[in-house]
Write a protein that binds this DNA or RNA. Structure first.
Length: 537
DNA sequence: ATCCGAGTTGGTTTC
DNA sequence: GGAAACCAACTCGGA
Protein backbone atom coordinates (compact mmCIF):
# COMPACT_ATOMS: atom_id res chain seq x y z
CA UNK A 1 0.00 0.00 0.00
CA UNK A 2 1.35 3.38 -0.93
CA UNK A 3 0.65 6.61 0.92
CA UNK A 4 1.44 10.27 0.78
CA UNK A 5 3.66 11.12 3.74
CA UNK A 6 4.23 14.43 5.39
CA UNK A 7 7.44 14.74 7.40
CA UNK A 8 7.03 17.69 9.74
CA UNK A 9 10.40 19.04 10.85
CA UNK A 10 10.57 21.23 13.99
CA UNK A 11 13.55 20.15 16.04
CA UNK A 12 15.37 17.08 14.74
CA UNK A 13 16.82 19.07 11.85
CA UNK A 14 18.84 16.18 10.52
CA UNK A 15 18.88 13.17 8.24
CA UNK A 16 20.88 10.81 10.45
CA UNK A 17 19.15 8.86 13.23
CA UNK A 18 15.79 10.26 12.33
CA UNK A 19 13.15 7.57 12.88
CA UNK A 20 10.29 9.88 11.90
CA UNK A 21 11.90 10.53 8.53
CA UNK A 22 12.75 6.87 8.05
CA UNK A 23 9.19 5.85 8.65
CA UNK A 24 7.81 8.63 6.48
CA UNK A 25 9.71 7.27 3.50
CA UNK A 26 8.47 3.67 3.88
CA UNK A 27 6.20 2.71 0.98
CA UNK A 28 5.55 6.36 0.36
CA UNK A 29 4.25 7.39 -3.02
CA UNK A 30 5.08 10.98 -2.26
CA UNK A 31 7.04 12.52 0.59
CA UNK A 32 6.58 16.13 1.64
CA UNK A 33 9.34 17.36 3.99
CA UNK A 34 7.91 20.46 5.65
CA UNK A 35 9.11 23.15 8.01
CA UNK A 36 6.77 25.93 9.10
CA UNK A 37 8.33 29.35 9.61
CA UNK A 38 6.53 30.63 12.69
CA UNK A 39 6.22 34.44 12.71
CA UNK A 40 6.40 34.42 16.49
CA UNK A 41 9.86 32.91 16.25
CA UNK A 42 11.14 34.85 13.27
CA UNK A 43 9.48 38.23 12.75
CA UNK A 44 11.08 41.31 14.34
CA UNK A 45 9.75 42.42 17.70
CA UNK A 46 10.94 45.94 18.34
CA UNK A 47 9.73 45.93 21.94
CA UNK A 48 12.21 43.23 22.91
CA UNK A 49 15.37 44.18 24.81
CA UNK A 50 17.63 42.89 22.04
CA UNK A 51 17.34 42.57 18.26
CA UNK A 52 15.24 39.59 17.29
CA UNK A 53 11.73 38.20 17.46
CA UNK A 54 9.33 37.75 20.34
CA UNK A 55 10.89 34.37 21.10
CA UNK A 56 14.51 34.58 20.08
CA UNK A 57 17.43 36.91 19.67
CA UNK A 58 19.10 37.18 16.28
CA UNK A 59 21.91 34.71 16.86
CA UNK A 60 19.57 31.79 17.38
CA UNK A 61 17.39 32.83 14.46
CA UNK A 62 20.52 32.85 12.33
CA UNK A 63 21.49 29.44 13.68
CA UNK A 64 18.06 28.08 12.78
CA UNK A 65 18.20 29.50 9.25
CA UNK A 66 21.61 27.92 8.70
CA UNK A 67 20.29 24.63 10.01
CA UNK A 68 17.36 24.80 7.60
CA UNK A 69 19.63 25.56 4.65
CA UNK A 70 21.81 22.63 5.48
CA UNK A 71 18.81 20.35 5.84
CA UNK A 72 17.48 21.56 2.49
CA UNK A 73 20.84 20.76 0.85
CA UNK A 74 20.88 17.29 2.35
CA UNK A 75 17.33 16.62 1.22
CA UNK A 76 18.20 17.85 -2.27
CA UNK A 77 21.15 15.48 -2.42
CA UNK A 78 18.61 12.71 -1.76
CA UNK A 79 16.34 13.87 -4.57
CA UNK A 80 13.92 15.90 -2.49
CA UNK A 81 13.87 19.33 -0.86
CA UNK A 82 12.65 21.17 2.20
CA UNK A 83 9.28 22.85 1.76
CA UNK A 84 8.99 25.99 3.82
CA UNK A 85 5.73 27.69 4.67
CA UNK A 86 5.05 30.91 6.54
CA UNK A 87 2.33 30.99 9.17
CA UNK A 88 0.86 29.50 12.26
CA UNK A 89 2.18 25.91 12.47
CA UNK A 90 -1.09 24.21 13.49
CA UNK A 91 -3.14 25.98 10.87
CA UNK A 92 -0.52 25.42 8.18
CA UNK A 93 -0.04 21.71 8.81
CA UNK A 94 -3.80 21.07 8.89
CA UNK A 95 -4.15 22.83 5.56
CA UNK A 96 -1.33 20.86 3.96
CA UNK A 97 -2.66 17.55 5.23
CA UNK A 98 -5.89 18.24 3.38
CA UNK A 99 -4.37 19.71 0.28
CA UNK A 100 -1.94 16.91 -0.40
CA UNK A 101 -4.24 14.08 0.64
CA UNK A 102 -1.78 12.95 3.28
CA UNK A 103 -2.23 9.49 4.74
CA UNK A 104 0.71 9.51 7.10
CA UNK A 105 2.05 12.30 9.27
CA UNK A 106 5.45 11.91 10.95
CA UNK A 107 7.12 14.19 13.44
CA UNK A 108 9.51 13.83 16.34
CA UNK A 109 7.95 13.80 19.81
CA UNK A 110 8.64 17.02 21.68
CA UNK A 111 8.16 17.48 25.42
CA UNK A 112 7.98 21.26 25.77
CA UNK A 113 4.61 22.58 26.96
CA UNK A 114 4.29 24.85 23.93
CA UNK A 115 5.01 21.92 21.61
CA UNK A 116 2.70 19.52 23.43
CA UNK A 117 -0.20 21.93 22.96
CA UNK A 118 0.66 22.57 19.32
CA UNK A 119 1.19 18.91 18.49
CA UNK A 120 -1.91 17.84 20.37
CA UNK A 121 -4.05 20.04 18.14
CA UNK A 122 -2.49 18.62 15.00
CA UNK A 123 -2.70 15.08 16.29
CA UNK A 124 -6.40 15.44 17.14
CA UNK A 125 -7.13 16.76 13.71
CA UNK A 126 -5.19 13.97 12.03
CA UNK A 127 -6.88 11.25 14.06
CA UNK A 128 -10.32 12.58 13.23
CA UNK A 129 -9.42 12.63 9.57
CA UNK A 130 -8.07 9.10 9.64
CA UNK A 131 -4.48 10.07 9.08
CA UNK A 132 -1.84 7.81 10.56
CA UNK A 133 0.39 9.68 12.99
CA UNK A 134 3.91 8.51 13.90
CA UNK A 135 5.65 10.54 16.59
CA UNK A 136 8.75 8.76 17.91
CA UNK A 137 11.07 9.84 20.70
CA UNK A 138 14.39 10.74 19.11
CA UNK A 139 15.33 14.08 20.64
CA UNK A 140 16.48 12.43 23.85
CA UNK A 141 18.23 9.16 24.73
CA UNK A 142 15.24 7.94 26.72
CA UNK A 143 11.51 8.48 26.64
CA UNK A 144 10.97 10.75 29.67
CA UNK A 145 7.49 9.29 30.14
CA UNK A 146 8.98 5.80 30.42
CA UNK A 147 11.51 6.92 33.01
CA UNK A 148 8.74 8.42 35.13
CA UNK A 149 6.71 5.24 34.82
CA UNK A 150 9.71 3.16 35.89
CA UNK A 151 10.11 5.39 38.93
CA UNK A 152 6.57 4.77 40.12
CA UNK A 153 4.88 7.68 38.42
CA UNK A 154 7.14 10.44 39.75
CA UNK A 155 10.27 11.86 38.23
CA UNK A 156 13.47 11.05 40.14
CA UNK A 157 14.71 14.22 41.79
CA UNK A 158 18.37 13.37 42.16
CA UNK A 159 20.84 12.63 39.44
CA UNK A 160 22.01 9.44 41.12
CA UNK A 161 18.52 8.01 41.49
CA UNK A 162 17.92 8.94 37.87
CA UNK A 163 21.06 7.02 36.87
CA UNK A 164 19.93 3.95 38.77
CA UNK A 165 16.62 3.89 36.93
CA UNK A 166 17.64 4.41 33.35
CA UNK A 167 19.40 1.66 31.49
CA UNK A 168 21.35 1.84 28.28
CA UNK A 169 19.88 3.95 25.51
CA UNK A 170 18.95 2.32 22.24
CA UNK A 171 21.49 2.82 19.45
CA UNK A 172 20.94 5.34 16.67
CA UNK A 173 19.17 4.23 13.52
CA UNK A 174 21.55 3.00 10.87
CA UNK A 175 21.79 5.49 8.06
CA UNK A 176 20.12 3.72 5.19
CA UNK A 177 18.41 6.44 3.22
CA UNK A 178 20.01 6.68 -0.20
CA UNK A 179 17.15 8.42 -1.91
CA UNK A 180 13.83 9.90 -0.92
CA UNK A 181 10.38 9.45 -2.48
CA UNK A 182 9.44 12.25 -4.85
CA UNK A 183 7.42 15.31 -3.97
CA UNK A 184 3.87 15.40 -5.23
CA UNK A 185 2.38 18.41 -6.88
CA UNK A 186 3.13 21.54 -4.93
CA UNK A 187 2.00 25.06 -5.58
CA UNK A 188 5.32 26.77 -5.76
CA UNK A 189 3.86 30.18 -5.16
CA UNK A 190 3.34 29.46 -1.51
CA UNK A 191 6.56 27.61 -0.81
CA UNK A 192 9.37 29.86 0.31
CA UNK A 193 13.09 29.49 0.29
CA UNK A 194 15.11 29.69 3.47
CA UNK A 195 14.93 33.41 4.21
CA UNK A 196 17.94 35.51 5.04
CA UNK A 197 18.17 37.60 8.17
CA UNK A 198 17.69 40.66 5.97
CA UNK A 199 14.58 39.23 4.31
CA UNK A 200 13.05 38.66 7.71
CA UNK A 201 13.22 42.39 8.34
CA UNK A 202 16.50 42.76 10.17
CA UNK A 203 18.35 44.57 7.39
CA UNK A 204 18.92 47.67 9.49
CA UNK A 205 20.03 45.81 12.61
CA UNK A 206 23.66 46.41 13.40
CA UNK A 207 25.23 43.65 15.41
CA UNK A 208 28.93 44.12 16.02
CA UNK A 209 29.75 40.49 16.47
CA UNK A 210 27.78 37.39 15.48
CA UNK A 211 28.02 34.02 17.07
CA UNK A 212 31.06 32.13 15.76
CA UNK A 213 29.04 28.90 15.72
CA UNK A 214 27.34 27.95 12.47
CA UNK A 215 24.15 25.94 12.45
CA UNK A 216 23.31 22.71 10.65
CA UNK A 217 23.72 18.96 10.66
CA UNK A 218 26.90 19.03 8.55
CA UNK A 219 28.53 21.41 10.98
CA UNK A 220 27.31 19.29 13.91
CA UNK A 221 28.82 16.10 12.50
CA UNK A 222 32.06 17.88 11.72
CA UNK A 223 32.21 19.23 15.24
CA UNK A 224 31.36 15.84 16.75
CA UNK A 225 34.09 14.19 14.72
CA UNK A 226 36.63 16.82 15.75
CA UNK A 227 35.72 16.41 19.41
CA UNK A 228 35.89 12.62 19.33
CA UNK A 229 39.23 12.66 17.52
CA UNK A 230 41.05 13.69 20.67
CA UNK A 231 40.50 10.46 22.54
CA UNK A 232 42.59 11.46 25.48
CA UNK A 233 40.57 14.61 25.93
CA UNK A 234 37.27 12.73 25.66
CA UNK A 235 38.37 10.03 28.10
CA UNK A 236 39.59 12.49 30.72
CA UNK A 237 36.89 15.11 30.38
CA UNK A 238 35.73 16.50 33.71
CA UNK A 239 33.28 19.34 33.44
CA UNK A 240 34.27 21.24 36.60
CA UNK A 241 37.92 21.21 35.54
CA UNK A 242 37.33 23.17 32.37
CA UNK A 243 38.24 26.81 32.10
CA UNK A 244 35.18 29.04 31.79
CA UNK A 245 37.43 31.82 30.50
CA UNK A 246 38.64 29.89 27.44
CA UNK A 247 36.83 31.33 24.46
CA UNK A 248 39.00 30.81 21.41
CA UNK A 249 39.30 27.14 22.28
CA UNK A 250 36.28 26.45 24.46
CA UNK A 251 36.77 23.90 27.22
CA UNK A 252 33.70 21.92 26.18
CA UNK A 253 32.45 20.45 22.89
CA UNK A 254 29.94 23.26 22.14
CA UNK A 255 27.62 20.62 20.75
CA UNK A 256 24.73 21.94 22.86
CA UNK A 257 23.19 24.18 20.18
CA UNK A 258 23.25 21.24 17.75
CA UNK A 259 21.54 19.01 20.30
CA UNK A 260 19.02 21.75 20.98
CA UNK A 261 17.88 21.89 17.36
CA UNK A 262 18.46 18.21 16.78
CA UNK A 263 21.14 18.84 14.15
CA UNK A 264 22.95 16.19 16.15
CA UNK A 265 21.34 13.05 17.55
CA UNK A 266 22.09 12.56 21.23
CA UNK A 267 22.17 8.83 20.56
CA UNK A 268 24.86 9.23 17.93
CA UNK A 269 26.87 11.39 20.32
CA UNK A 270 26.42 8.79 23.06
CA UNK A 271 27.56 5.99 20.77
CA UNK A 272 30.56 7.99 19.63
CA UNK A 273 31.62 8.45 23.23
CA UNK A 274 31.19 4.74 23.99
CA UNK A 275 33.33 3.90 20.98
CA UNK A 276 36.12 6.10 22.29
CA UNK A 277 35.81 4.64 25.79
CA UNK A 278 36.33 1.15 24.35
CA UNK A 279 39.66 2.22 22.94
CA UNK A 280 41.15 3.73 26.07
CA UNK A 281 42.28 2.19 29.34
CA UNK A 282 40.20 4.33 31.62
CA UNK A 283 37.77 7.17 31.36
CA UNK A 284 35.87 9.55 33.59
CA UNK A 285 32.31 8.77 34.68
CA UNK A 286 29.03 10.61 35.21
CA UNK A 287 28.29 13.14 36.49
CA UNK A 288 31.47 14.85 35.29
CA UNK A 289 32.22 12.90 32.09
CA UNK A 290 30.90 13.74 28.64
CA UNK A 291 28.39 10.91 28.88
CA UNK A 292 27.47 12.45 32.20
CA UNK A 293 26.66 15.70 30.42
CA UNK A 294 24.28 13.94 28.06
CA UNK A 295 22.63 12.29 31.04
CA UNK A 296 22.20 15.65 32.78
CA UNK A 297 20.25 16.69 29.75
CA UNK A 298 18.05 13.62 30.10
CA UNK A 299 17.62 14.20 33.82
CA UNK A 300 16.27 17.69 33.27
CA UNK A 301 13.97 16.53 30.49
CA UNK A 302 12.44 13.93 32.81
CA UNK A 303 11.97 16.27 35.77
CA UNK A 304 10.68 19.03 33.53
CA UNK A 305 7.97 16.94 31.90
CA UNK A 306 6.97 15.42 35.23
CA UNK A 307 6.69 18.66 37.23
CA UNK A 308 3.68 20.95 36.81
CA UNK A 309 4.68 24.61 36.48
CA UNK A 310 8.32 23.62 36.18
CA UNK A 311 9.19 26.95 34.60
CA UNK A 312 7.92 29.13 37.41
CA UNK A 313 8.20 29.50 41.17
CA UNK A 314 4.50 29.69 41.98
CA UNK A 315 2.68 26.42 41.90
CA UNK A 316 5.90 24.50 41.39
CA UNK A 317 6.13 21.86 44.10
CA UNK A 318 9.86 21.30 43.80
CA UNK A 319 10.69 25.02 43.87
CA UNK A 320 11.52 26.90 47.06
CA UNK A 321 9.30 29.92 47.58
CA UNK A 322 11.69 32.82 47.98
CA UNK A 323 10.81 36.53 48.26
CA UNK A 324 13.07 37.72 45.47
CA UNK A 325 13.34 41.48 45.37
CA UNK A 326 11.80 43.42 42.53
CA UNK A 327 14.69 45.76 41.85
CA UNK A 328 14.56 46.31 38.10
CA UNK A 329 17.56 48.64 38.09
CA UNK A 330 19.85 45.90 39.31
CA UNK A 331 18.29 43.39 36.93
CA UNK A 332 18.80 45.68 33.96
CA UNK A 333 22.38 46.42 34.99
CA UNK A 334 22.98 42.66 34.95
CA UNK A 335 21.23 42.11 31.64
CA UNK A 336 23.04 44.99 29.97
CA UNK A 337 26.50 44.00 31.26
CA UNK A 338 26.71 47.12 33.44
CA UNK A 339 27.21 45.70 36.92
CA UNK A 340 30.71 47.12 37.25
CA UNK A 341 32.11 43.65 37.93
CA UNK A 342 34.21 42.96 34.83
CA UNK A 343 33.99 39.18 35.03
CA UNK A 344 30.20 39.24 35.35
CA UNK A 345 29.82 41.84 32.61
CA UNK A 346 32.20 40.04 30.25
CA UNK A 347 30.14 36.87 30.52
CA UNK A 348 26.98 38.84 29.76
CA UNK A 349 28.67 40.39 26.73
CA UNK A 350 29.74 36.96 25.50
CA UNK A 351 26.16 35.78 25.94
CA UNK A 352 24.87 38.63 23.84
CA UNK A 353 27.52 38.45 21.13
CA UNK A 354 28.06 34.72 20.88
CA UNK A 355 24.86 33.25 22.32
CA UNK A 356 27.08 30.81 24.13
CA UNK A 357 29.34 30.77 27.14
CA UNK A 358 30.92 28.07 29.29
CA UNK A 359 28.72 26.32 31.80
CA UNK A 360 30.64 27.71 34.78
CA UNK A 361 30.38 31.23 33.39
CA UNK A 362 26.62 30.71 33.32
CA UNK A 363 26.83 29.59 36.94
CA UNK A 364 28.70 32.71 37.93
CA UNK A 365 26.24 35.19 36.43
CA UNK A 366 23.17 33.21 37.51
CA UNK A 367 24.42 33.04 41.08
CA UNK A 368 25.26 36.75 40.99
CA UNK A 369 21.80 37.73 39.76
CA UNK A 370 19.88 35.58 42.25
CA UNK A 371 21.03 34.21 45.59
CA UNK A 372 24.59 35.50 45.49
CA UNK A 373 24.32 39.26 45.10
CA UNK A 374 21.34 40.97 43.48
CA UNK A 375 18.56 38.76 44.86
CA UNK A 376 16.58 39.11 41.64
CA UNK A 377 14.04 36.43 40.66
CA UNK A 378 15.53 33.54 38.71
CA UNK A 379 12.66 33.71 36.22
CA UNK A 380 13.99 37.05 35.00
CA UNK A 381 17.44 35.65 34.38
CA UNK A 382 15.90 32.60 32.78
CA UNK A 383 14.06 34.80 30.29
CA UNK A 384 17.28 36.57 29.30
CA UNK A 385 19.12 33.29 28.76
CA UNK A 386 16.17 31.81 26.90
CA UNK A 387 16.25 34.67 24.45
CA UNK A 388 19.97 35.07 23.95
CA UNK A 389 21.43 31.58 24.08
CA UNK A 390 21.80 29.72 20.80
CA UNK A 391 21.45 26.48 22.78
CA UNK A 392 18.59 27.58 25.01
CA UNK A 393 16.50 24.58 25.83
CA UNK A 394 13.33 24.82 27.90
CA UNK A 395 13.96 21.92 30.27
CA UNK A 396 17.68 22.48 30.73
CA UNK A 397 17.56 26.23 31.06
CA UNK A 398 14.81 26.20 33.66
CA UNK A 399 16.43 23.29 35.47
CA UNK A 400 19.71 25.08 35.77
CA UNK A 401 18.12 28.32 36.97
CA UNK A 402 16.27 26.35 39.63
CA UNK A 403 19.60 24.81 40.53
CA UNK A 404 21.73 27.93 40.64
CA UNK A 405 19.20 29.99 42.55
CA UNK A 406 19.02 27.22 45.20
CA UNK A 407 15.34 26.90 44.44
CA UNK A 408 15.57 23.20 43.71
CA UNK A 409 18.06 20.31 43.30
CA UNK A 410 20.88 22.25 45.00
CA UNK A 411 20.53 23.89 48.39
CA UNK A 412 23.93 25.03 49.59
CA UNK A 413 23.20 28.69 49.45
CA UNK A 414 26.29 29.52 51.45
CA UNK A 415 28.43 28.55 48.50
CA UNK A 416 28.52 31.75 46.53
CA UNK A 417 30.70 32.38 43.53
CA UNK A 418 32.92 35.39 44.00
CA UNK A 419 32.47 37.87 41.13
CA UNK A 420 36.17 38.74 41.42
CA UNK A 421 38.25 35.81 42.57
CA UNK A 422 36.43 32.89 40.86
CA UNK A 423 37.61 33.65 37.34
CA UNK A 424 40.99 34.97 38.48
CA UNK A 425 42.22 31.47 39.14
CA UNK A 426 41.57 30.50 35.51
CA UNK A 427 42.64 33.70 33.85
CA UNK A 428 44.78 35.85 36.16
CA UNK A 429 45.66 38.42 33.54
CA UNK A 430 42.06 38.90 32.44
CA UNK A 431 42.40 38.02 28.75
CA UNK A 432 38.73 37.06 28.65
CA UNK A 433 37.61 40.37 30.15
CA UNK A 434 39.83 42.41 27.81
CA UNK A 435 38.38 40.63 24.80
CA UNK A 436 34.72 41.11 25.65
CA UNK A 437 35.01 44.50 27.35
CA UNK A 438 37.48 46.43 25.18
CA UNK A 439 37.25 49.56 27.32
CA UNK A 440 39.13 47.63 30.00
CA UNK A 441 41.81 46.30 27.68
CA UNK A 442 44.58 48.49 29.04
CA UNK A 443 43.71 48.16 32.70
CA UNK A 444 46.74 46.74 34.51
CA UNK A 445 46.56 43.12 35.57
CA UNK A 446 46.45 44.02 39.26
CA UNK A 447 43.15 45.82 38.82
CA UNK A 448 41.44 44.03 35.91
CA UNK A 449 39.00 42.17 38.15
CA UNK A 450 38.44 45.14 40.48
CA UNK A 451 39.09 48.24 38.38
CA UNK A 452 37.42 50.57 40.91
CA UNK A 453 40.34 49.91 43.24
CA UNK A 454 42.84 51.31 40.74
CA UNK A 455 44.26 54.74 41.63
CA UNK A 456 42.83 57.49 39.45
CA UNK A 457 46.13 58.05 37.64
CA UNK A 458 46.19 54.38 36.70
CA UNK A 459 42.63 54.62 35.39
CA UNK A 460 43.50 57.69 33.35
CA UNK A 461 46.58 56.02 31.92
CA UNK A 462 44.45 53.00 30.97
CA UNK A 463 41.90 55.29 29.27
CA UNK A 464 39.23 53.93 31.51
CA UNK A 465 37.97 56.06 34.35
CA UNK A 466 35.59 54.12 36.54
CA UNK A 467 32.23 55.83 36.75
CA UNK A 468 32.77 57.45 33.37
CA UNK A 469 34.05 54.87 30.91
CA UNK A 470 33.05 51.78 32.84
CA UNK A 471 30.50 51.59 35.68
CA UNK A 472 31.23 51.52 39.36
CA UNK A 473 30.06 48.29 41.01
CA UNK A 474 26.28 48.38 41.45
CA UNK A 475 26.60 46.55 44.76
CA UNK A 476 29.32 45.73 47.26
CA UNK A 477 29.72 41.98 47.01
CA UNK A 478 30.97 41.58 50.58
CA UNK A 479 27.89 43.26 51.96
CA UNK A 480 25.14 42.00 49.66
CA UNK A 481 26.33 38.41 49.60
CA UNK A 482 26.07 38.26 53.39
CA UNK A 483 22.63 39.77 53.16
CA UNK A 484 21.65 37.20 50.54
CA UNK A 485 22.71 34.37 52.84
CA UNK A 486 20.51 35.81 55.56
CA UNK A 487 17.54 36.17 53.23
CA UNK A 488 17.97 32.65 51.91
CA UNK A 489 18.13 31.32 55.46
CA UNK A 490 14.89 33.06 56.30
CA UNK A 491 13.16 31.89 53.15
CA UNK A 492 14.28 28.30 53.72
CA UNK A 493 13.03 28.42 57.30
CA UNK A 494 9.67 29.64 56.10
CA UNK A 495 9.49 26.90 53.49
CA UNK A 496 10.26 24.18 56.02
CA UNK A 497 7.82 25.40 58.64
CA UNK A 498 4.99 26.17 56.26
CA UNK A 499 2.33 23.53 56.76
CA UNK A 500 1.55 22.97 53.14
CA UNK A 501 2.51 25.61 50.64
CA UNK A 502 3.73 29.13 51.14
CA UNK A 503 1.11 31.62 50.05
CA UNK A 504 1.86 34.69 48.01
CA UNK A 505 0.86 36.83 50.96
CA UNK A 506 3.24 35.12 53.35
CA UNK A 507 5.97 35.46 50.80
CA UNK A 508 5.32 39.15 50.27
CA UNK A 509 5.26 39.73 53.99
CA UNK A 510 8.59 37.97 54.43
CA UNK A 511 10.03 39.97 51.58
CA UNK A 512 9.03 43.25 53.17
CA UNK A 513 10.48 42.21 56.51
CA UNK A 514 13.72 41.07 54.97
CA UNK A 515 14.33 44.45 53.42
CA UNK A 516 14.72 45.82 56.95
CA UNK A 517 18.02 45.89 58.74
CA UNK A 518 19.87 42.62 59.00
CA UNK A 519 19.97 40.86 62.32
CA UNK A 520 23.16 39.61 63.89
CA UNK A 521 23.45 35.91 64.22
CA UNK A 522 26.29 35.46 66.66
CA UNK A 523 25.94 31.80 67.51
CA UNK A 524 25.68 30.02 64.21
CA UNK A 525 25.17 26.68 65.88
CA UNK A 526 21.79 27.84 67.06
CA UNK A 527 20.67 28.63 63.55
CA UNK A 528 19.20 25.21 63.02
CA UNK A 529 16.64 25.69 65.73
CA UNK A 530 15.65 29.17 64.59
CA UNK A 531 12.33 29.75 62.91
CA UNK A 532 12.09 32.15 60.04
CA UNK A 533 10.63 34.85 62.28
CA UNK A 534 13.88 34.82 64.24
CA UNK A 535 15.71 36.08 61.20
CA UNK A 536 13.60 39.18 60.95
CA UNK A 537 15.03 41.23 63.78
C1' DA B 1 8.46 8.04 60.34
C1' DT B 2 13.17 8.72 60.96
C1' DC B 3 17.68 8.77 59.75
C1' DC B 4 21.66 8.29 56.66
C1' DG B 5 24.72 10.01 53.65
C1' DA B 6 25.53 11.81 49.33
C1' DG B 7 25.71 15.90 46.91
C1' DT B 8 28.63 17.69 39.09
C1' DT B 9 32.24 22.29 39.88
C1' DG B 10 32.82 27.86 46.95
C1' DG B 11 36.42 30.50 49.26
C1' DT B 12 40.64 30.89 51.53
C1' DT B 13 44.85 29.34 53.43
C1' DT B 14 48.63 26.35 53.61
C1' DC B 15 52.16 23.47 52.04
C1' DG C 1 51.04 25.49 40.51
C1' DG C 2 48.24 22.06 42.39
C1' DA C 3 46.47 19.48 46.03
C1' DA C 4 44.84 19.30 50.61
C1' DA C 5 42.99 21.19 54.70
C1' DC C 6 40.20 24.22 56.67
C1' DC C 7 36.02 27.23 57.02
C1' DA C 8 31.14 27.16 57.96
C1' DA C 9 27.85 24.48 57.09
C1' DC C 10 23.68 22.66 54.35
C1' DT C 11 19.71 20.02 52.55
C1' DC C 12 16.53 16.39 51.62
C1' DG C 13 15.64 12.32 48.62
C1' DG C 14 15.55 7.78 49.26
C1' DA C 15 15.72 3.89 51.88
Amino acid sequence: MEVNSLMWFRKGLRIHDNPALDYATKNAKHLYPVFVLDPLYLNPDTSAFSPGSKKSALNRIQFLLESLSDLDSSLKALGSRLLLFNGDPVHTIKRLLNRWNIGRLCFEFDTEPYSLTRDGQVQDFASHTGIEVFSPVSHTLFDPREVIKKNGGKPPLTYQSFLRIVGIPSPPHANTISSLPPLGNIEDSEVSNVPTIEELGYADVKQEEYSPFRGGESEALKRLKASLMDKDWVANFEKPKGKPTSFENPATTVLSPYLKFGCLSSRLFYQGLQDVFKEVKKHTLPPVSLVGQLLWREFFYVVAIGTPNFDQMKGNKICKQIPWSGDDKLFIAWREAQTGYPWIDAVMVQLRKWGWMHHLARHAVACFLTRGDLFVHWEKGRDVFERLLIDSDWAINNGNWLWLSCSSFFYQYNRIYSPTSFAKKYDPSGIYIRHFIPVLKDMPEDYIYEPWTAPLEVQIKANCVIGRDYPKPVVDHDIVSKDCRRKMGAAYAMNSTASDVVTGEELGSLGRKLEKQPIQISDTKKQKQLKFTDYLG
